[in-house]
Every structure is written in C-alpha cells, then in structure tokens.
Amino acid sequence: MSVLLFTLIVLAGAFLAGLIGSLTGLGGGVIIIPLLTLVLGVDIHYAIGASIISVIATSSGSAAAYVREGITNVRIGMFLEIATTVSAVIGAVITVFIDPNYIAIIFGAILLFSSAMMIRKKVDRSDNDTSGRLAIFFKLNGSYPTGSGIKKYAVHNVAGGFFMMFIAGIVSGLLGIGSGALKVVAMDNIMRIPFKVSTTTSNFMMGVTAAASAVVYLHRGQIDPGIAMPVAVGVLLGATIGSKILMRVKADRLKVIFAAVVTFLALQMIYNGYMGRL
C-alpha cells in the first residue's frame, strides 16, 4: 500500500473512531485498534503505540474543559494515579512478551465488557453519609457544582478502588487504551463517587496514565510516525466535532447501535486471535 493511501484511510478511520468514541464515551482506541489490525493488517504492537497517542490527545483535550468547570476531583485523580501509572508501566513492559493473538483475545474481552457497560442502566449510589478513615486521611471527599447549588459527596472503599485502578492501569498499558470502563467500575461502583465527578476525573487521569506507558512504547519503537500522525490527528478532530454535536443528538439510541458495532469488533478480534491470525 502506498504511504498516501494508507495515511488517508487511517485518517478517515481515526476520525470516525474519535467521533464515535466521544459520542459514546468509549474513547478512540477501542475502534482504532481493530481498524488497524483487522482491516489494514498492521502489527498489533504498532496499533497499540498509535492508539495510546490518541488517548493522550483526546483525554487532555476534554480534561481541559472539565477541570475549569470545577467538577474534576484533582485529589482523587492524583491519589489514584499512583496506582495507574505504576501498573501502566508494568503493562507496557510486559506487552511485547505476550503473543499478539493473546493480546487480541484480551482486547476483545475488554471490548465486550465495555459495550455491556455502555448500555447498562447506571445507578448513582453516591451519598454524603459515611466515609472511611482513608478517604478522610487523603482528603478525597469533595463537592461539585450542580444546577441546584454545590453538592457534597463522600468517597467509600478507597482500598478497593485503588486496587481496581491498578488493574485498569495494567489493561491500559497492555492494550494501549484508556480503559475507561474499568476506571468507571472502580469509581462508580466501588468508591461510589457521583457520575459527573467520576467520568471527568477518570478522563483527567487517563492522560497521565497513558503518558507513562507511551514513554515505554516510544523507546521500544512501537510509536511509528507514519501511523501515529494520521491516528492522532484523525481521532482528535473526530472527538472535537463529536463533543460539539453531542448536545444535539439522542445519545441513548446511538449507544445501543454502537454497542452492537463494538460487540461485533470484539468477536472479530477474539476469533482472529483464537485462529492465530494476528
């Protein structure tokens, strides 16, 4: 394939990935990796390297807006980044020692999980009643602005959330994705942080987590300029436009459609990995 054709296809695909990613909250990596590996025959290690760059670009771009609004809990973010950066580096170090076919299968499994999380009805279990000693020691309890004034919340099960974040970081470093679905499990279900705070804080952490593994990928030669360039530019453009039209479309119906698409991609990745084609 010629450089020009390859660049244009990846640019268009990455644009779509960024658009869908921001509309569904999935992130661009889950679509860009199947596109590169299954459609364009790119080695999964290059796909991972390019994907992590798009994760940094989109998460930093949207975090910029959220941080200013004062919804992000910077302390929760910083505290959990200890877990995610350490584990992201571990994930990025071990990823080359794993058979690409196994990586594809793990990737498919995470994708299935993410699409299930996407359509599941969310239950906000946040409260301001009880709070553990760790949450008080680390000053994690906070407040955020809502339509009806400042709302306070208490953080629960800090140790459990920290452990889940460690898992999320390993997955992120292993596969080159933001692993937002796992971070949401840690924050919504285990630590019981309000949605608005958990989504923005998870996004805020993603950039640093991805940067930690990106450095490892870069040194290993997994970040190739010919792939990283169209992926980063395309995903960022798509995500920017996606966030602009997000307010005008009914996201719920879109999510069901995209969950089906993602499930299909997941099964493809698992099938190809199982058959040893990657």
Binding site: I53, A57, S59, G207, V208, A211, L218
Partner: peptide
C-alpha cells in the same frame, strides 16, 4: 509533536 503531547499531562 508526539513527545510534546506525551509531556503535556506530565
């Protein structure tokens, strides 16, 4: 450019 991007969250 990629390096600048990596260093932004750092």
């Amino acid at each position: 450019g990629v390096l600048l991007l990596i260093f932004t969250p750092i």
